[in-house]
Nucleic acid binder design. Structure first.
Lengths: 223, 223
DNA sequence: GCTCATATGTCCTTCATGTGTCCAAATAAG
DNA sequence: CTTATTTGGACACATGAAGGACATATGAGC
């Protein structure tokens, strides 16, 4: 299930660049150029994330935030040219979750969106939410893996990697994508680190390692 | 047993945002938009914490504080747009425990609520409530640890830390989280104080120290 | 207020473990 | 069969935690 972002921004070229980056990162992107149609879109598609420009004709970002918050707790990121603290407080008071000040790098915006989504999912995970496959159970609260009733210790990278794969069951994830999510966009090293960690994860998964499939030329898939 | 907060605030958008943050933090949230129904709610649910807007139609926050204080010593936080000292004194006089001035960050409000609750629970803990693990017993009344029938003296920080870990058995707690709960959100120092106190606690726990597990890159866990 | 004992916080060194790179062998694709 | 890609092993390097030593803060008793 792809994550949906609703992008509300009146400047066409900014919107296009941002949309591009989100698409590359695997998001389903819905775009609009003004606040009032944003509300209609919101009701129609129920996005996982909303990105709002503050300065817009008709209905500004603050007003949209207010309307959206009346309906839902969806993560909201505000784009602003103003960087004064007053604006920040104004926005946070209305319930925006993050701010990005123009000019910004689309890459950074995508990264922030992802970390926001991650936090949101982590927060809403009920006590010791379990993800399971075969004879294995992953406890997201204690960051542990249980294999046939045996506790298996995972290193941070191994755990993050496994979780990412589980959250995208049956989707092929490119090394690029995995790198962006588990290592962060700043990581400068070799793509092939992913291979190494997949290898270690497989070793720890033992009998259940067959769930991690190699998709040659592309990446990895959990199934 | 989840903590209950009664949230009394007439502005819908603020109420929703705040309610959201409290829910994310694991609270059971009861909401109402005016002072007189707040009293009814109070009698019905007996919350662990009350958050009151001062400016409300019919019955303002001060009046509600007075009524609630007549019945109970429950912690009360007042939300106010006015920040003059007069208001503060007026409120404290009636028995509010803390003030938060609008506009505020919901995050900070939740943090303050937690620190208030912590203080309150320490005061109101039932007589000699015991927590045990292995051969150890913690007496929350006397703040003492008994190990194999031997009394072990714990310093305040050691005790608070142990209690926090015990209360979140099997959950990994980040240094950040531990800091916020044991040291308070104001603490400015190094994250690594936590390590030092874990070390001291382990030393005092002796044979039972294996219950405190290090989760590398993340924090500590009691199991 | 002063002194002492204890609690708390910081720093630094050591050590263990986690992480990333490289290369040869194995496997899949064309 | 040839080439591209992944795997697995070995190794070097980076990071984070433990442990010890020490400086400072706090609080009780005088």
């Amino acid at each position: 299930m792809r994550k949906k972002v609703l992008l509300v921004e009146d400047e066409l070229r900014i919107r296009e660049v941002v949309a591009d980056y989100f698409k590359k990162d695997g998001w389903e992107v819905h775009e609009t150029d003004n606040g009032s149609s944003a509300i209609d879109w919101f009701d129609a598609i129920y996005p996982d994330l909303v990105i709002l420009d503050i300065m817009m004709p008709k209905m500004d970002g603050f007003a949209v935030t207010k309307e959206v918050r009346a309906k839902s707790g969806v993560p909201i990121i505000l784009l602003t040219a103003k960087s004064s603290d007053d604006d920040k407080i104004h926005g946070f008071d209305l319930g925006a979750d993050d701010y990005v000040t123009k000019p910004f790098s689309p890459k950074v915006l995508v990264a922030r969106a992802n970390s926001l989504m991650k936090r949101a999912t982590e927060h809403y995970l009920p006590n010791g939410h379990m993800l399971s496959f075969g004879h294995a159970v992953v406890n997201t609260k204690s960051r542990q893996l249980e294999l046939d009733k045996q506790q298996v210790e995972l290193t941070p990278k191994e755990y993050d990697l496994l979780l990412l794969l589980l959250q995208h069951k049956n989707n092929v994830l490119s090394r690029e994508t995995i790198l962006n999510h588990v290592w962060g966009i700043d990581f400068e090293g070799d793509n092939r680190v992913v291979d190494t960690h997949i290898k270690k994860l497989r070793a720890k998964l033992g009998d259940e390692s067959h769930h991690i499939r190699t998709v040659i030329g592309t990446g990895y898939k959990f199934e």
